[in-house]
């Protein structure tokens, strides 16, 4: 039998790593908070779940796929919110979205009462839940409003780790965050590749072309073009460390959402008839810090 001590160093380095991607949302939320401080709000046994899914013959989950936990980060009061990508694609329904919006509102109220409360969001989501579309869109608007209100008090950090990715309404939430942390495996985009293929045809975008998809909205490309602030390995400790470092850094020097003119200008420069490679985009946008 091979013992751990006999394994080559590079293998040991791999085995010493705990994959964040493979963790479920609850474990992820615990990972982002200081050890032993995880305290879940509206947990599975409270059974605050979607009333709409069973009406449409879909099995609901006891936490509606959104985990909210209070705790501390580096000893400071914090809330960790994590979406479960495996349940209905991490989609935002009335309950899951309201849990997130209310948690952010409580954090803001804490800040207003003189208890700065940090917020970290682990987003795995295809966006709004189509079965609860109108309520879902409304609650996403509330989430966005609360993010804007909260980030005036404390930094809000979004982690996109994969493998579901972060699309639709939750990509807006990521765009409003003070900081975005991504892995190479993660994707961040308004429209998901499957949706683009479905709506515009396979000649527009082949959603199965993984190298192409990741070259457009993958973590490495998003980091290289300034959409994500930190690129991390799929390692739970490294991700938690990156989140802590960003809270230590404090308010960002610029907010991406305040730089809309730059992004409109960027879009105007692109001729959609002529396809652009990931490298060309990196080259064009590398010096344009918002």
């Amino acid at each position: 039998m091979t013992t751990a001590a006999q394994l080559p160093e590079e293998v040991l380095a791999l085995s010493a790593r705990y994959s964040y991607i493979e963790m479920n949302a609850r474990t992820r939320a615990g990972q982002l908070l200081d050890p032993g401080t995880f305290c879940e709000l509206l947990g599975p046994f409270d059974r605050i779940e979607s009333p709409w899914l069973p009406m449409q013959d879909i099995v609901p989950q006891s936490d509606d796929g959104c985990i909210v936990a209070k705790g501390t980060i580096d000893g400071k009061p914090a809330v960790a919110i994590a979406l479960e990508g495996k349940f209905q694609g991490g989609s935002i329904g009335e309950v899951s979205g309201m849990k997130m919006a209310t948690a952010l509102a409580l954090a803001r109220q804490g800040c207003e009462r003189g208890i700065p409360t940090r917020a970290v969001l682990s987003l795995e989501s295809g966006g709004v839940r189509l079965q609860e579309a109108n309520i879902g869109e409304l609650v996403i608007a509330e989430i966005c409003a609360e993010l804007i209100a909260l980030r005036q008090h404390v930094p809000v950090v979004v982690v996109v780790a994969g493998m579901t990715g972060c699309f639709g309404g939750m990509s807006l939430a990521a765009g409003l965050a003070s900081y975005v942390v991504m892995t190479r495996q993660a994707r961040l985009s308004m429209n998901g590749p499957e949706v683009i293929e479905q709506e515009a045809g396979i000649e527009e975008l082949d959603a199965r072309d993984r190298p192409l998809i990741w070259s457009i909205c993958g973590g490495a490309q998003r980091h290289a073009t300034g959409i994500a602030d930190v690129l991390v390995e799929d390692d739970a400790a490294e991700i938690a460390q990156a989140v802590r470092a960003l809270f230590k850094r404090g308010e960002p020097t610029h907010l991406r959402s305040a730089a809309h003119e730059l992004y409109i200008e960027r879009l105007a420069q692109l001729d959609p008839v002529q396809p652009w490679s990931a490298e060309q985009i990196r080259e064009m946008w590398k010096d344009q810090t918002p």
């Binding site: 599975p44 609901p60 479960e84 495996k86 349940f87």
Partner: peptide
């Protein structure tokens, strides 16, 4: 004692034990 495991994801299940 109560316990919670699993996820309502493809090929999987969630169990709440009380």
């Amino acid at each position: 004692k109560r316990a919670h495991v699993g996820v309502v994801g493809s090929g999987d299940l969630e169990i709440l034990l009380e």
